[in-house]
Write a protein that binds this DNA or RNA. Structure first.
Lengths: 112, 112
DNA sequence: TAACTATATAACCATATAGATATATAGTCA
DNA sequence: TGACTATATATCTATATGGTTATATAGTTA
């Protein structure tokens, strides 16, 4: 089990880094890309199709994710294959997504 | 155990909400405030002192955290006491902080 | 080589956000 | 009541960021 933050003080610099990590996940498009990649690697074109976004936009986000080590890149022919490089991301999302899903489901249920 | 995001597709709207949650934690000042509150409730003044920031800035961030339900507010006299309202935050931070701490420690170790 | 495909990057714009300053609100105490 | 303390809010500025358009790069194939 991971240690709880409550147990250890973090320095100014450490907090900056932590904030940066969370910021990576604070964009719907990047979450969507990561969600697409959960089933395995995909090319930029496939992600463009899946996300219904523009190619430059997808490339840009992939570049950001790659810079942070959250995704890996592999070239084959003239295609670039991306895959998840840090599975811990899904642990994070699991905690948040689970909570969000419950809340939204309840909200939806109250309408029916 | 929470379910893994990989198991369930999330809608556009759900991804927005998840992104918003992560954005809440993507600011060093807010993380610092939460870190201060891990030991128990604190007044705005105490948080201003602890964070070395301005009173309006602290109040603003507290308002943001409160709006998202991450902190609770209690009034006593003319002081406002804030406390953590969603302990799951620390589960999230634990995963990220643990990783960050390890990396920075290793980096520091390589200089000695 | 030229034409084509896939991806990356650069330049730009609109919006969002953190922080500062000034001010307002509200509770306390004389 | 008025002075004081604690907190909240309004306004502004600088910066960061997501998305678009246009262009560059690099691999492929005829």
């Amino acid at each position: 089990m991971v240690k709880n933050m409550a147990e250890i003080e973090m320095s100014e610099a450490q907090l900056e880094v932590v904030a940066d990590r969370f910021r990576l996940l604070s964009d719907p498009m990047r979450l969507k890309i990561l969600q697409c990649l959960r089933e395995g690697e995909a090319t930029v074109s496939q992600l463009v199709e899946a996300t219904q976004s523009s190619q430059p936009n997808v490339s840009k986000h992939l570049s950001i994710l790659k810079g942070a080590g959250l995704v890996k890149r592999r070239q084959e022919g003239n295609s670039a294959y991306f895959s998840v490089g840090a599975p811990f991301v899904f642990d994070l999302c699991a905690i948040v997504c689970d909570g969000v899903r419950k809340e939204l489901d309840e909200k939806q249920a109250s309408f029916s």
